[in-house]
Design a protein around this nucleic acid. Structure first.
Length: 129
DNA sequence: CCGTTGACGTAAT
DNA sequence: AATTACGCCAACG
């Protein structure tokens, strides 16, 4: 078995969960890790998102840290502005301190939806239109 | 192979 | 509320 395949599987699972975040809402890295059945792997979520290509459809912008702040700015200040602009375009409002009110915008997925997502009755959960 | 780093989180101080 | 310490684990040199 190829361990890199396992890693890809983890990344893919992370990406899938991120894709479930509705526009105008946000999730923390820890949330994504938890929903992806990878508890305490928040850093892995960050690493996975870092590895995303530019043309990806994954709404990586909706993932912020537990303080309600944009973590991307630590390394890429331009990326922070980009992420903030994208979120504001979805209706997410930033406070004076540059933070998002997680009480209001934090995504709370339906447990049944997640269960159905990880245990699809039929292969291809994204097949339907 | 080992030490450091990193789009993090939680708890303690 | 801000800082420190620690845990976590893949990627990098």
């Amino acid at each position: 078995m190829d361990t890199s395949q396992q890693t890809l599987n983890k990344y893919q699972r992370i990406y899938q969960v991120v894709c479930l975040i509705p526009p105008g809402q946000v999730a923390t890295y820890g949330d994504i890790a938890r929903f992806a059945n990878l508890p305490r792997h928040a850093r892995l979520v960050g690493y996975a998102l870092h590895a995303l290509p530019e043309n990806s459809d994954v709404p990586w912008q909706r993932v912020i840290n537990h303080q309600g702040r944009i973590s991307l700015g630590r390394l890429y200040p331009e990326g922070e502005q980009r992420q903030r602009a994208a979120l504001e375009a979805e209706g997410v409002v930033f406070g004076e301190n540059g933070r998002v009110n997680l009480k209001r915008y934090r995504w709370q997925p339906d447990p049944f939806l997640l269960d159905a997502f990880f245990n699809p009755p039929h292969p291809g959960p994204e097949q339907s239109t």
